[in-house]
Nucleic acid binder design. Structure first.
Lengths: 346, 346
DNA sequence: TTGAAAGCGCTAACAG
DNA sequence: CTGTTAGCGCTTTCAA
C-alpha cells in the first residue's frame, strides 16, 4: 500500500509552507501563478491525494450523503424502484462530487442505529429517506436533530417541517381512471397494494374521484387491497374474475401484480386487450420483455431520486430553508393493453 | 442542529482526562468499574456520540467499504442482481459495524475517479468490485495500490493476485445441460448473453462438455449469443423456432430472456412444458409471478455478496494474505417447465 | 503574496 | 488505574 503523501511532504519538496499547498489545492486567488505552477507540479509528481477525513474534521463537512433504505432491502428486491432511485440520487451527487452511504441494517431498529451513527458520527452531510412509513422513528429523529434530510414519499400525518418528493398519486390515478372510463369501461377493478401505504390510499382516492365524476358506481367488490405476493394476488384475481359481473378493466398498483394478472388471464384464455383492459402502475423497461403490450403509468423513479438529492443539497446549503414539497409528474405510457368497450363503439 | 458533544466536554463534566473517556468508550480493561460507571453516565446524559472523522484520522481506518458498480447503474436495472448482492454485502458489513459507500459515476472514467477518491481519500478500508470486464482500469489500479479488494466474477485473463468470488458456471451449465439431456432432449438451444462476458463463455463450455459426454451433437445454429434486449431476443428466438428442426429445449442465460421466450412461445401456441422445455439461469423470487412454472438455476447472488464482504474483511485484517477464490455453488430449482421427451418415455 | 501557529476530536504512548 | 502530551492531515486566522 502506497505510503500516503501529505500536504507537508509536498510543502517540503516545493519549499513552501503547508498552508500554501492547501491554498494551491483550493486554487486560492491570493497565490501567485508562479507558486501555483510550482506546487502543482510537485503535487502531481508525488501523486498527492487529499485525506478526506482530515479535511472533514476541520471543515465539518463530509461530501457524502446517506440513504436510508426500507427495513429489509429485501422488499426492494422485486421492483426496479431501488436501483432506479439510487441512479437518480447518484447522478446528482456525482455532479457535486458527493458520495453515497447506505444503511445496512435489516431490521427497523438496526436501520435506526445506522442513521444515528451516520448523523452523530458526522459521516454524512444530509440524508434521503427512501420510504414513508407510519410510526417510523427515523424521520422524527432527523427532525428533532434538525439534520438536513428529504423524504421520498409522503410524510405520515401531522408532521410538519419535512421536505419531501412525491408523485401526485391522486392525480395520476384519476387520470388513468379517466382514460379507462373514456374507453367505455364501467366495470373497473382496483387491484393491489396494502392499504397502509399512503400511495395506495391516494390512488384509491383518485380512482374514486374519477368514477364519481363520470357518474359510474364504484363497486366495493372490485377493490382488492392486498399485499404484494403470489398467493394473495392469485386469490384476489380469481375472486374478481369469478364475479357474476367480472370487471372488464383492471387498474393494477404494481408491475408484478400486472405480470401475475396477465398470466392468470392467459390461463383462462381471456385475451388482453380484446376482452380485458389492463393498466399498470410503476412503469419499467422490463415490460418490453412481456409479450402483452401493457399500458403503464410511469412514476419517474429516476427523477424522484434526482430531485431528492437536489433538495438535500439546497437544505445543506441553507439549513433554515422553509420545507417544501416537490411533485414529480406521472405519465401514462399507452400500449395496446385495452380495448374500446362497446359503449364507446356504438 | 445539536451542537456536538466532544470527549473533552464529557471529560470536564466527569472530572477525568479525555483519554480516560476514550478508554471508557472502548471499554478498556485498565479502567476501574467505578470510573466507567461515572463516565458512562455523563456520556449518556450529554448525548455523546463519536466523531468518526476524528477517529478515522488517527486510527487510519474508516469502518466503511466501497462498492464499485458497473458503469451505468442502468445495466443493473433489469435484474435483481444489484439489490440482492448489496443485501448480501450489507448484511455482513452491518454485523461488523461497517457502512457502505457506492460509486456514483455513470461512465467508466467517472467510476474510476470515484474509486481513486475513495482509495486515496481514505474513505474506505476495502472495496468490492461488482463486475469483471476486460480492459477495465479499476482492478489494475487497486492491484497496483495494493489496496484490499475483492472481485465478484472472474478476473479477466492473465491477472494474478486477485481474490474473487464466483459461481462455477462451467459446472452449473454442465449440470443443467445434463438435466435436460436426461429428460431426453437432443435439440437443445443455448440462448442469450454477449460472448464477451466470462460468464457466458463458461456456461457455453459447460453446455458443450455435457453434450459431448452424452454423445449429442452441438449444433451451431442452436447457439445464440446475443445482447440482452427485446429486439435481439425476439430475433434470436424466432430464428430458432423457424429452424426445420426447431429445438425442443432452451437453456436461457437470463431471466428476462426467459420471460421473453415464454411470451413468444405462448403467442405461437407452443405449450411449456408440454411441447417445449425451458431452463433459465439467474433465479429470482420474481418467477413466482409468472404463470409458467419455470425451472431456474439459482446463482445465490446474496451469498456472492456476503462472501465477498467476508473476504474483504479478511484481506483488511491481513493484507499479506494469499489471494484466493471462492466458488458459490449453484442450484437447479426444478419446476414444471420441461417435459420428458419421447426418447425417455418409450 | 506567503508563512507560522493553532486547533478540529480523537487515540496512544509514556509517565506517574 | 489515570493523566499528560503529542500528534493524525488539514484549514484558517493572523502577521509579516
Amino acid at each position: 500500500m502506497n505510503l500516503s503523501v501529505t500536504i507537508k511532504d509536498v510543502a517540503k519538496k516545493a519549499n513552501v509552507a503547508p498552508s500554501t499547498v492547501s491554498r494551491v489545492i483550493h486554487n486560492s486567488p491570493t497565490i501567485s501563478e508562479k507558486t501555483k505552477r510550482k506546487v502543482r507540479k510537485v503535487l502531481k509528481e508525488m501523486g498527492y491525494h487529499m485525506n478526506e477525513n482530515a479535511r472533514n474534521l476541520v471543515t465539518k463537512s463530509t461530501k457524502a450523503i446517506g440513504i436510508v433504505m426500507k427495513s429489509s432491502a429485501r422488499e426492494s428486491l422485486y421492483n426496479p424502484f431501488f436501483p432506479e432511485v439510487i441512479r437518480g440520487i447518484g447522478d446528482f451527487c456525482n455532479k457535486e462530487g458527493y458520495s453515497l452511504s447506505l444503511t445496512t441494517g435489516e431490521t427497523e431498529d438496526a436501520i435506526f442505529e445506522d442513521v444515528v451513527k451516520m448523523v452523530q458520527g458526522r459521516r454524512v452531510d444530509g440524508m434521503i429517506v427512501l420510504y414513508s412509513k407510519k410510526d417510523d422513528k427515523v424521520v422524527p429523529y432527523l427532525l428533532k436533530q434538525g439534520f438536513p434530510f428529504v423524504l421520498i414519499g409522503k410524510p405520515s400525518t401531522n408532521m410538519s417541517g419535512i421536505t419531501f418528493i412525491d408523485n401526485d398519486n391522486v392525480q395520476a390515478a384519476r387520470e388513468v381512471s379517466e382514460f379507462v372510463i373514456n374507453l367505455g369501461h364501467e366495470r373497473i377493478a382496483f387491484l393491489g397494494g396494502s392499504p397502509e401505504f399512503e400511495v395506495i390510499q391516494d390512488r384509491l382516492t383518485g380512482f374514486q374521484q374519477a368514477m364519481e365524476q363520470a357518474g359510474v358506481d364504484v363497486r366495493q367488490e372490485y377493490i382488492k387491497l392486498i399485499p404484494l405476493n403470489r398467493t394473495d394476488g392469485i386469490k384476489a384475481i380469481d375472486e374478481l374474475l369469478e364475479l357474476k359481473e367480472a370487471p372488464t378493466a383492471f387498474l393494477v398498483m404494481d408491475l408484478l401484480l400486472g405480470v401475475l394478472l396477465l398470466g392468470v388471464l392467459a390461463e383462462k384464455n381471456l385475451k388482453v386487450p380484446q376482452q380485458i383492459s389492463v393498466v399498470c402502475f410503476n412503469h419499467s423497461e422490463f415490460i418490453e420483455f412481456l409479450s402483452t403490450p401493457l399500458t403503464t403509468v410511469d412514476i419517474h423513479t429516476y427523477q424522484l431520486g434526482y430531485e431528492a438529492a437536489k433538495c438535500v443539497f439546497d437544505l445543506i446549503a441553507n439549513p433554515e430553508m422553509m420545507e417544501k414539497s416537490i411533485s414529480i409528474p406521472t405519465k401514462i405510457i399507452k400500449r395496446e393493453s385495452h380495448f374500446v368497450a362497446e359503449k364507446e363503439i356504438k
